[in-house]
C-alpha cells in the first residue's frame, strides 16, 4: 500500500485489487446486490483507494480496515441513498521514521492476532461476527442470540484499543 501511496505504483495497486476485489464482491453480494451491481461497487471502492491513497497512514489503519470503511460508505449510499458523515481526519504522518515503522508493525501484529481469534471461532459464531460487522445484526441482537462470540473478539479489541489509545495520546490535530 505504501508503494501505491508514495510511488503511485500501478502493479502494487493491481495486487491489492486481485486480493481484495473478490472479497469486496462477496460482501457486496450478500447484501442482495446483483453480480453486476456488486462489481460496480468494487470498482468504486478500489478507485477511491487509489485516489485517496495520500490519506493512508499505516500507523493508524490497515489497508483492510480502510477498505472496510470505504466499502461500508458505498453500500450505505447504494442501498439507503444516505451519506455517512465521517469524523475529521487526523493529519497523516507522511514521513517514515523508526517510530512510525514500529507502530505500523505493532498494529499489524495486533490485527494478525485478531484474525487468528476470528479464525478460531466456530462457524456459527463467525457468522454472527460477520453479521455484526456487515450491518446485518446489532451488538444487542447478537448478545441476545448467543452472548458468546463477541467475548473473544472483545478482549482482542480491548487490547487493540489500549494500544491505539496510547498511540493517539499526544497526537494534536492540525
Amino acid at each position: 500500500m505504501l508503494a501505491v501511496r508514495d510511488k503511485r505504483d500501478k502493479r502494487a495497486f493491481a495486487a491489492l485489487f486481485d486480493h481484495f476485489g473478490p472479497r469486496l464482491k462477496g460482501v457486496a453480494m450478500r447484501s442482495g446486490l446483483s453480480s453486476g451491481q456488486a462489481e460496480d461497487m468494487v470498482q468504486d471502492v478500489m478507485l477511491s483507494l487509489w485516489r485517496k491513497a495520500h490519506l493512508f497512514d499505516p500507523t493508524r489503519a490497515q489497508v483492510s480496515s480502510w477498505l472496510y470503511q470505504i466499502a461500508r460508505n458505498r453500500q450505505i449510499d447504494i442501498l439507503r441513498k444516505e451519506n455517512r458523515p465521517m469524523p475529521e481526519a487526523l493529519k497523516a504522518e507522511s514521513e517514515v521514521t523508526e517510530e512510525s515503522t514500529s507502530e505500523a508493525l505493532g498494529l499489524e501484529q495486533e490485527v494478525g492476532a485478531l484474525k487468528a481469534a476470528l479464525a478460531k471461532l466456530k462457524p456459527a459464531q463467525r457468522e454472527m461476527v460477520e453479521k455484526a460487522y456487515l450491518g446485518e445484526l446489532s451488538h444487542t441482537d447478537i448478545e441476545a442470540e448467543t452472548g458468546l462470540p463477541l467475548g473473544t473478539i472483545k478482549s482482542r479489541i480491548r487490547l487493540g484499543l489500549e494500544k491505539l489509545r496510547h498511540e493517539l495520546d499526544g497526537i494534536r490535530k492540525p
Binding site: 481484495f20 472479497r23 469486496l24 460482501v27 493508524r60 489503519a61 490497515q62 489497508v63 483492510s64 480496515s65 480502510w66 477498505l67 472496510y68 470503511q69 466499502a71 461500508r72 498494529l107 495486533e110 490485527v111 485478531l114 484474525k115 476470528l118 461476527v129 460477520e130 460487522y133 456487515l134 473478539i153 482482542r156 479489541i157 480491548r158 487493540g160 484499543l161 491505539l164
Partner: peptide
C-alpha cells in the same frame, strides 16, 4: 478504529 480493524479482518 478497533471496530474498523475488526471489520477489516472480517472482510
Amino acid at each position: 478504529s478497533a471496530h474498523e480493524m475488526t471489520g477489516g479482518a472480517v472482510l
